[in-house]
Nucleic acid binder design. Sequence first.
RNA 1: GCCCCCAUCGUCUAGUGGCCCAGGACGUCGGAUUCUCAGUCCGAAAACCGGGGUUCGACUCCCCGUGGGGGUGCCA
Length: 519
Amino acid sequence: MTVRTRFAPSPTGYLHIGGVRTALFNWLFARRHGGQFILRIDDTDLARNIDEALDPILEGLRWLGIDWDEGPGVGGPYGPYFQSQRADRYRTAAEKLLASGHAYRDYATPAELDEERKAAQAAGKPFLYSRRFAAFDDAAAARFEAEGRKPVVRLKMPREGSLVLEDAVRGRVEFAWEREQDHVIQRADGSCLYHLASVVDDHDLAITHVIRAEEHLSNTPRQAFIALSLEYELPGYAHLPLVAEPGSRTKLSKRKLATYLKNQDFRRVMEHGQAIAERIGLTGEADTFNPVIVDFYREVGYLPWAIDNYLALLGWSFDDKTEFFTREELIEKFSLERINASPASFDPKKLWAVEDHYMAALPVEEKLALMLPYLEKAGLVASPPTAEQREIVGKVIEAAGDRLKVAGDILAYADFFLVDEPEMDPAAVAKRLAKPGVRPLLEAFTAAARETEPFEPGPLEDALKATAEAAGAKVGDLVHPVRVAITGRGVGPGLYDYLAILGRERSLARLERALPRCG
RNA sequence: GCCCCCAUCGUCUAGUGGCCCAGGACGUCGGAUUCUCAGUCCGAAAACCGGGGUUCGACUCCCCGUGGGGGUGCCA
């Protein structure tokens, strides 16, 4: 039997981090077993701008390297892969259920149902519909119709016995049938509901393993009932632990963004991203541009595999030591058995550390390819960049080293090489330049730099140290003012590298321009 | 209310009765290196939710609490 898994997102316009984790696990499991991963679109709500709402999701998955064997864009033998195009399949299934007595037409109004529900709750009893508006024969149906009622189709759930399921993550779980509601599977207007659609689709698409979030665990009995009644073979189930809010156990939701932003780590990641977005002219709406949504990471320039690797560790582990995996390793090592059952909270700090790890390991050439587009978007280099610009940026990347965590970080490290007059950070100027005694030091170094030959890091270091020593000052007393003069900032990579990258002429010009601001 | 799931350092986790006075990682704190920042290196603090069983022996098994979460929709 070929393993077939699926990810079935609704076209909401964004790809949620928890959704990605689900997609990733499905994809990994399919790849692990040489099976197929199917992308199905749960668009029963018939959103108008389906493409617009779907694109970010497809793009996000592609970016993450989660490729699908069947679904939008690639087709496949089991299509269509949009629920909106499969409505007749659901209606046929509903008819079958009706005919076999596993469902019935119900004429109760929502208000009447609600009344029963409330009464049960008030009595402290589990709610069980009385079925008093159920039409089990035509005569009853005609009577209700005569009253002007419209029917929905409800499941006729068993009222005794229980369902025992073997969940790959949770083990044996048992549900008493009598606790299950007679859920509606078809609305009064004839359209069908999620649970029916989902079960029919999983069967039609020959899905062998349903791997989904834990929030669906309680839904499983009613879905299993539908499947069993339709004489489908039950798929294997694996209910993944919830991805929870940072520092909490509550399900991560994009609606509660404001709450998450109170979390310091989360806010830092957000602000870091916003700073980059601003410079590349991204009008980041908080709705989609935030650390709960995958687009955020793509736009800011995280490495997709860092996200995948981090997410794989959210609820799954290989052993007590291994944390980094290549794509091939992860596929080879992934298994449902090692999925943890308890919820895992999303930790932006850990994601950051994983990103740091992969970015640090990336060869300069690859970083360059990733980072140049950011400088282009910010208008700091030509489009395409000139050979000279490429060279400068390449050198900056080398000098900046591990300081570049995401591709967008290049903006803060290369900008002052690409403009004639860098902006001066007032705080840095006040702290390092506008102090008594700085000016003569800087003048002395300017003179020394004029003569330094060649204008390379080594000789420059010697020159600076000699200058400081001659003036009876510490190296730091000179390094800091020079950095501010050159870059406009108080912190940054090795100064000698930066001087060399900038070149003699431009370095001297900046040093001279800084002199008047000295104390 | 009712049903279901979950419970090890702040966080992600290892641990399937003795190897555990609980291991790793992120983060935190301290130190070293350095021109700042980043990094790197060294070191430290930090957890088995509570109570009962079972057992020669429980983080590991069972029960009960407690806490957290999910479901309970003509949402998905």
